[in-house]
Simulated assay, not measured.
Amino acid sequence: MAVADPPSWTRSLPIVAPAALAALMIGACFLGPLVLPVPPPTGGSVLESYLPSFTPGNPLGTDPNGNDILSRVLHGGRSSLTVAVSVNALGLLAGGALGALSGYLGGIGDTIIMRLLDVLIAFPSLVLILAVAQSLGPSRTNTILALAFFSVPAFARLSRAATLRLREQPCMAAAELCGTPSWRILLRHIAPNVLPQLVTFAMLGMGLIIVIEGALSFLGLGIQAPEPSWGNMIAQGQQSLSATPMLVVWPCLALFATVLAFNLLGESLRSRWSGE
């Protein structure tokens, strides 16, 4: 007896569900402060500090400075997501271009590019990120630059591997025999086929970058107070964790939901495009 194929919507569920959760978190962080009646994330009154959750006007309560926690979670998510998107975009563009160029050129050019990237990979990246963030000074821009620099090798290796596979295809040989310029082959034939794999890797990297940014902010090397980020909110809340645990719980829940959504989305896209 033949088994009926599952409905099409069930096959799309592993992608749609995490994509919806990621879209919900992004929409809440970027549009929420514009449409919800929340106060600014800074400038609160100490007379209203440590208000409990579900207080009228402050649904998630307030922090030690009297700032609304819901507002800070939303604005903090905006900061953390901005860092993650910027880092992955820079890493994808720079690493993807280097990897495609290396794989297409081959020979000595390929060797030089990959050996330089191997040197960078050989160093413990987290230690170097901490060192670079410390030397440049804590700020959002410096955090993005430090994380993007160390994300380039991973994107480059993936792009190079995909380019090497594409070079063996008959269409590539045909394009070269027709005299198509190298830059046109890279842009019209290689880039469109490599990009889906890089985007999938970026989706998986979003969660990792959000966690690393949170760790840097927690250590005082990332986004600095009073500008909120999930990392520095957790750092602030852990000082009074036993008395007011919700100061840590709310940003942790937002961080967990966002990282989970991007990890599941990236894994689902990888499985779909790899045919698993």
Rank of each mutant, 00 (worst) to 15 (best):
Y104C: 01
S135M: 06
S49G: 05
T62P: 10
G57T: 14
L51M: 14
L90M: 12
V83R: 08
I129K: 00
Q134P: 00
T62F: 11
D63W: 07
L105D: 03
T55Y: 01
A84F: 07
D63A: 11
L120A: 09
L98R: 12
S159I: 05
Y50R: 14
T62C: 10
V152C: 01
T163A: 01
P56R: 05
R160Q: 11
R167V: 08
S125G: 15
V83E: 01
A156E: 07
D63R: 11
G95A: 01
R165T: 14
A148M: 04
L101H: 07
S159Q: 06
L51I: 09
H75R: 14
V132M: 08
V127W: 12
D118S: 03
L74Y: 10
F149V: 06
Y104R: 05
P56Y: 02
S45T: 15
R78S: 09
L93D: 00
P138E: 02
A122D: 02
L92Q: 04
L158T: 12
H75D: 11
T42N: 11
T163Q: 04
T55C: 02
I129R: 00
D118F: 05
L90D: 02
I113T: 15
S86A: 13
R157M: 03
I108S: 15
L126S: 09
L92M: 10
A162P: 00
A97K: 10
S71I: 10
V119M: 13
L136W: 11
A162F: 00
T42E: 14
D110N: 15
S80A: 14
F54P: 02
S45Q: 12
R78M: 13
T55R: 01
S86K: 10
L74A: 10
P41C: 12
A154F: 10
L136T: 14
L147N: 08
G43I: 04
G107D: 04
V119A: 12
R78K: 13
T111K: 15
R115K: 12
L81N: 06
P124S: 07
S53M: 08
P153H: 05
A154G: 14
F54I: 13
A89N: 05
P124T: 01
P153Q: 11
L47P: 02
V85C: 06
G107Y: 02
A133L: 02
S53E: 07
L98Y: 01
A162Y: 02
L101Y: 13
S79N: 13
S49N: 13
S49V: 06
V73W: 03
I108V: 14
